[in-house]
Design a binder for these strands. Structure first.
Lengths: 313, 313
DNA sequence: TTGAAAGCGGTACCAC
DNA sequence: GTGGTACCGCTTTCAA
């Protein structure tokens, strides 16, 4: 590896001067500059980024923690982050966590060891306390409403839109609504917001047999619908947590030769467009973009809210 | 930042000894070890990864170059790479290229500057010559058949499966086949393989009006199908380059109140399952896993071929 | 079993 | 404008 000292020697100047030429900063005589550049060309020199990083104490890497890449919620946010990184000086490092707390802690430790300048949690199992504890080592942004003010956050304004959707249902005289959630009420903020909005509009929670709490895929949606069909429940609408799930519901009804009730999806995916399912667009790509801007920005503590839309079709 | 020398001083030993304790290598007296560990605990010390990287001359980062994350071909391979990285010591850095040659060259230069230990090109615009030129700076793997032996590569065995699919069509007395490609014959190896296989079976290329060369999305598929419908072409089958595209084709026919011909997709996506479209599964996740194993491995020059399946439904 | 010292490859402050 | 030098923080060889 030819280094900065080789260039210095070759061109008869000091390493400091080579460094100046390299960075185009400070004054260097034109003749000196040319001599140094000639030496660099001749020795086929390029600077070493790791050495530079060490000297600067930073490496422009942002770690992005997500459980896996099988769910559109994660991948859509990730896409936004990546798109935004393309326009910034930062690189995105993917850190899969499989919902495993100790893996997440390990990533926080890596932040502490300077492996990254900053971290984005698209989702997390560990507590917010743990996250704030590590904030001294680099900026950390979470992609959810933390319900406290000492955490950088970007999140979708779900509640308003859920209220809008449920209000609309009610205006259509629809009151028998099944709800398919991705995770149980206790462990998911999204589930809490959904059910709280539901209760605000319908003044009660859904009956137990109309509430499904671990539905995340097409297949899960299909099976939940089958349960509803078999039990011959009186259902006017099935409110799901994603268009793929919604598609599963519709397919299940069709497989049973039945007309599905009104099905509502989320995330405005292709599956929903194909089957003409009303949906809620949370604009996760935009959320991802904001997350990167926030985590690489210089500003004060901040929380950004992204609007979402209810799309009737 | 408390560093290794602080620990050395605090515990009354040399930095070398602290380093030994840190790495658990070489002999350190038990009493010494305990003293050092106590000092580390007390000063809340963690080693600096960048310094370690500089000393080692490597950083365990693998760059993954892809045009964008909007196409399932890219994201499926990426998922495989990420899943595999979880089981390795390497980190995945996402490098979006937007099909831009100078951006790709810049990433190659970053490899040279030691920003990464290795690179995976999921897709690339630059020449293979350029890629081999930079191979001296770190291992580089491409995700396509390079048709030469001096490049690490992982690719799907498309030709065999395309032949199988076309043969099956022929056995069904289907000879009027439209083909929707993602890119033109000249610039896409996949397009070449597709049409070459077509020609092997049908002894001729598709007519010009049955060949579409820049179709990549649902919408593109929809529009291509509209063209076919409007021109009232005699088509028994539409062979597409993806299930989402295939879904667009089917939807276009339905919108025109027409029964679609046999439509074949690729990639075994949800959209294809929903609409019951026959497809070709290229197992891109597996391809991604192999790509990471290959790029981080120690072995000789190697090329790995992934089997694909024709799924009739 | 341990320490001194020379790297790894740059950056940046302070004189001249 | 330019050079000297200390420093970023860890690893590793060689001697003791």
């Amino acid at each position: 590896m030819t280094n900065i000292h080789d260039i210095a020697k070759k061109s008869g100047v000091s390493a400091s001067t080579v460094s100046r030429v390299l960075n185009g900063k400070n004054y260097v005589a034109n003749s000196t500059r040319l001599a140094v550049e000639a030496a660099m060309k001749e020795l086929n020199y390029v600077p070493n980024d790791i050495a530079r990083d060490l000297s600067h104490g930073r490496n422009y890497n942002v770690g992005v923690i997500l459980p896996h890449t099988k769910h559109p919620y994660f991948t859509q946010i990730l896409s936004g982050i990546i798109a935004s990184s393309f326009e910034s000086d930062y690189r995105v490092v993917i850190l899969p966590s499989q919902y495993n707390e100790s893996v997440e802690i390990d990533y926080l430790e890596q932040l502490r060891r300077k492996a990254f300048d900053a971290l984005i949690f698209i989702s997390h199992e560990i507590s917010l306390d743990k996250i704030t504890e590590y904030s001294q080592y680099g900026r950390i942004v979470v992609c959810e409403n933390p319900n406290r003010e000492d955490v950088f956050a970007v999140y979708s304004k779900r509640r308003t839109t859920y209220l809008e959707a449920f209000k609309w249902l009610k205006s259509q005289q629809i009151e028998q609504v099944a709800v398919l959630l991705s995770r149980d009420y206790a462990s998911s903020v999204t589930s809490q917001i959904t059910l709280d909005a539901y209760q605000s509009i319908f003044t009660k929670l859904p009956n137990n047999d109309l509430l499904f709490e671990t539905v995340t895929t097409f297949q899960d949606g299909y099976e939940a619908a089958q349960t509803i069909i078999k039990q011959q429940l009186n259902v006017q609408c099935i409110f799901t947590n994603g268009d793929d799930v919604a598609a599963g519901v519709v397919q299940a009804y069709q497989a049973h030769q039945k007309t599905p009730p009104l099905v509502i999806g989320q995330e405005n995916q292709l599956s929903g467009q194909l089957l003409n399912i009303p949906t809620i667009n949370h604009h996760f790509d935009k959320l991802g973009r904001q997350a990167l801007e926030l985590v690489t920005g210089a500003g004060e503590m901040q929380q950004v809210v992204i609007e979402s839309d209810f799309i009737i079709r």
